[in-house]
C-alpha cells in the first residue's frame, strides 16, 4: 500500500517524530471518580480511555452468577466524538462486542475471581479518543483500574502494539500507521514474561511476526515500570494521607493514642 505520509523517513524518524522503538507519552490518572471502586484514565499519545470498575458486588443477573467464582462483565462504549469523523456506533456493533469479549477473557485468568464467589465485577470502558492502539490502551487502563479497586490479580497485564514497515519493526502505532502497516497487539504478564493476549489482524510473514512479537514483549516490560510507578505513587499518596499527615493510630496494634478521645 502506498501512503501520502512517509511512515519512516531516511533519518529513522516516524511521522510524529518518534524513533522506531519509541513509545508514545503515557499519562495515568487514577483519581477517584464518583462512586466507582476503581478508575483510571489512561492516555497513550492521543488515544485516551477511561475505565471504571464497580465491584466485586452482588450480581445483577442472578442466572449469570457462578457459585465458585466472580463473574466479570465488560462493557465498552466508544464515544461518537472519539474519531475524526463523528459517528455514533451501535452498542451491539460486532467490533465493540469483540473488544469487550477480548478484555473480558484477558482478565478472567488474571483476576483471582475464585475469592469472590457469586459476585460480579463490572468493567466499564469509555473510549474518549482514538489514535491507534485502542486495544492496548484498554487493556492497560483496565489493569490499573482493577488495581485501584483493590481487586486481587496475579500480575499486571501490559499490552503494546507493534507493526512492521517493510522490514523495520515499529512500536506503539498511531492511527495513521495502523491504517498502512500490518500490526498486532501483545499483552504480557511482566513477572513471568508470559503472554496472555495476541491479536494480529493483518497479513504478516511468519518471520516478521516472531520479530515484532519478541520486541513487543520487551516493550511490555518497559511499560510495566511506568504503570508500576503510577500505582506506587497512588498507594504512597493514600497511605501518607491516612497516616503521617494526621498522626493517627493505625489498626489495633498501637492504640495508646486512643486516650486522646477522652478529652471531651
Amino acid at each position: 500500500m502506498s501512503s501520502r505520509v512517509e511512515i519512516l523517513n531516511d533519518g529513522g524518524y516516524r511521522s510524529d517524530g518518534r524513533r522506531q522503538y519509541e513509545l508514545r507519552d503515557i499519562s495515568i490518572d487514577t483519581s477517584q471518580q464518583g462512586s466507582a471502586d476503581g478508575c483510571c484514565t489512561l492516555r497513550h499519545g492521543l488515544t485516551e480511555v477511561l475505565v471504571t470498575i464497580f465491584g466485586p458486588r452482588e450480581a445483577k443477573m442472578r442466572s449469570q452468577t457462578l457459585h465458585d467464582r466472580a463473574v466479570i462483565n465488560v462493557e465498552v462504549n466508544v464515544l461518537p466524538f472519539s474519531t475524526g469523523e463523528r459517528r455514533r456506533r451501535a452498542r451491539a456493533d460486532r467490533r465493540i462486542l469483540e473488544l469487550a469479549a477480548t478484555i473480558k477473557s484477558t482478565f478472567e485468568p488474571v483476576v483471582q475471581t475464585a475469592l469472590y464467589p457469586r459476585s460480579q465485577v463490572d468493567i466499564y470502558v469509555q473510549v474518549l479518543q482514538q489514535d491507534g492502539g485502542l486495544l492496548h490502551a484498554c487493556v492497560n487502563a483496565t489493569t490499573l483500574a482493577l488495581i485501584c479497586a483493590g481487586i486481587p490479580m496475579t500480575d499486571f497485564v501490559c499490552a503494546v502494539s507493534g507493526g512492521v514497515h517493510s522490514t523495520e519493526p515499529l512500536l506503539d502505532l498511531t492511527m495513521l500507521e495502523e491504517n498502512d502497516l500490518p500490526h498486532m497487539t501483545v499483552a504480557v504478564m511482566p513477572r513471568t514474561g508470559k503472554v496472555t493476549l495476541v491479536a494480529l489482524e493483518t497479513r504478516l510473514h511468519v518471520d516478521r511476526f516472531a520479530e515484532i512479537f519478541k520486541l513487543a514483549g520487551e516493550a511490555g516490560q518497559a511499560l510495566h515500570k511506568e504503570m508500576k510507578r503510577a500505582v506506587r505513587n497512588r498507594t504512597s499518596r493514600l497511605v501518607d494521607a491516612m497516616e503521617t499527615s494526621m498522626k493517627q493510630p493505625v489498626g489495633g496494634e498501637r492504640d495508646v493514642v486512643m486516650e486522646d478521645r477522652m478529652d471531651f
Binding site: 503472554v195 496472555t196 491479536a199
Partner: peptide
C-alpha cells in the same frame, strides 16, 4: 507462510517461545 490472524484472547498465559512453536506447527 503469511499469517493473517493470530488470536489469543486471554486464557492461560503462555510463554512467548510456546506461541512461536505453535505458529511453526501451524505453518
Amino acid at each position: 507462510r503469511e499469517l493473517c490472524v493470530v488470536q489469543k484472547a486471554g486464557g492461560v498465559p503462555l510463554a512467548p517461545d510456546e506461541i512461536l512453536r505453535i505458529v511453526g506447527i501451524a505453518v
